[in-house]
Nucleic acid binder design. Sequence first.
DNA 1: CACAATCTAATTGTGCGCAATTATAATGAG
DNA 2: CTCATTATAATTGCGCACAATTAGATTGTG
Lengths: 152, 152
Amino acid sequence: MAKKPAPNPLLQLDNQLCFAVYSAGHAFNRVYKPLLERLKLTYPQYLAMLVLWEQDNVPVKDIGERLFLDSGTLTPLLKRLEAAGLIKRTRSVEDERQMLIALTAQGQALREKAKAVPQGILAASGCTVGEMAAMKNDLVALRDRLNAAIGD
Amino acid sequence: MAKKPAPNPLLQLDNQLCFAVYSAGHAFNRVYKPLLERLKLTYPQYLAMLVLWEQDNVPVKDIGERLFLDSGTLTPLLKRLEAAGLIKRTRSVEDERQMLIALTAQGQALREKAKAVPQGILAASGCTVGEMAAMKNDLVALRDRLNAAIGD
DNA sequence: CACAATCTAATTGTGCGCAATTATAATGAG
DNA sequence: CTCATTATAATTGCGCACAATTAGATTGTG
């Protein structure tokens, strides 16, 4: 006869902020997928392109710091973007440890197509721009506190 | 001479709610990792255990509906939990298509150890319980709207 | 200069996460 | 009852995500 454990509110799935973040992330991904299919990009690839559209010709490290991803994730991802003809990877002349990532003409041109994406997301989210901004700010503050807590 | 593209606020990484969710999810994962190492669980495995601690002896489908994951993700994950001795997978007698997942004594016992986890997260988040609950509710509402938007 | 310490990517191995397919079981219409 | 339809998991293949390691370049110190 297994004793029913005392319910612990903190251990309940639906009380956990982290699961809300986790599952909302997956939901976003599923909404993005059909929109990004037209660009032939996955969501992490789209993020890398967003970084490059803001600043071109940057080392892998900078992209990683911006996206909170390491080279183990970025190296193969960027190789796929290169294979798709969207970027060019060249080793820096000043510091040969660095691999510089630059957009090709095709990569720059893709930005025009990408402009349609955020609208689609906004519509699916059912939020106003203000609500989205508020949630974003809360989440960024949370993320920064969590990242700060790691090196304890 | 590459023309500098007009900055498009909606395409900027730091304006995107989705990236905030994505990066906050990764930050949570990094905070969870050392806490879950003591339980020898990954975060998705921990989620599956949370479901089972709430309701034992359920089909894979139910776990999937609860976590928004499919059998392609859950089957190997559950096999690893079985190999670790935390659960038992048995085919249902009433409906042989279903695989029923039940906790072992060891799996039930792990719940005691897991009770320490949420406190660690709460501390790292730097939020009050009320702030966490508010964000959670906003995110769950967003997630549900996103999921509802998929079948359009 | 020599040489240790540091920095940057790449590589390797494990575990998700999901689309597409397959296999088997249950259900329903005629 | 028969056969198509539906339901449930498992399997396969691809792309992240990250820890740990490796390789090579750079920097700092004596």
